[in-house]
Amino acid sequence: MLVMKSEARGLIAHGVSACAGCGLELAARIIFDVMGANSVVVIPPGCAALFSGYGRETVTKIPGFQGNLESTAAYAAGIKAGFEMQGRGDVQVFGLAGDGATVDIGLQSLSGALERRDKILYICYDNEAYMNTGIQGSGSTPLAAWTTTTPGGKGVYRKDMVGIVAAHKIPYAATASVGYVDDLRKKMEKAKAATATGPAYIHVHAPCPTGWGSKPEHTVEVAKMAVQSLCWPLYEIVNGVEYTVTVPVSKPKPVTEYLKLQKRFSGAAASQVEKLQAMVTGDYEQLLNR
């Protein structure tokens, strides 16, 4: 039995070694709260592994397994199957993986689980680079962003991960943001319910003050600005076809308003910023027309 050496009002300890102002930590509390105690979490290496703990100590009250970087979905599928075969299909199994572990190395196993309609919830917390290993670029790093492996700014556009997920026509998929915590909570509840019939996926935008060069106190503000500048639209997709924008943006802010809050874009050339502006505007129009 887990020995309770600290008290916490939720399922995660209050003292977690995440950086001050960590977007993931805020998201994780909401995620765990909605999932509840009858759940098992799979966490690969990455920032979320801070919730796995270290040595004999953990900061989560629910059982968990730290898997490998590329196979969060596969571990979750196996765990779910094990419970199902013991008549305990009510146990919720969810993965909590970073963007690198999802859009890059974990894409294959995630796709497999989605195609098989395994009844798991997969949450990608997106801080737009490999932050835990020291800010290396990932497939989710946005155009023009500096990372240690895109020192001149990333020259290509990010992957449309939610689009890839939606193409599997799973019961529920959504983007979310720590800038809109009520929206995140609602989507978590819908996603949890959707796992009764198949997989659900939530992609949470989670600013990283350390990697983005933003101020810790600006985490929620930066996240909000990403939504308001159309860099991170909030929407959900039911069965891969029913698109709903959950936080409509009628008067978008220019992307520069978002970029200027972060040092990682400070070296971006005007042409790149223009390109980014055109991309996000175009994407949003496309989204509204779906």
Binding site: A74, A77, G78, G82, Q86, R116
Partner: peptide, 21 residues
């Protein structure tokens, strides 16, 4: 579980067996 790779095959097996089967 019709897995998409051997890597996932082993991960599924580990996950399932950790639940007690």
């Amino acid at each position: 579980i019709r897995v998409e790779s051997e890597h996932s095959a082993m991960c599924c097996a580990i996950g399932a067996q950790l639940t007690g089967v």
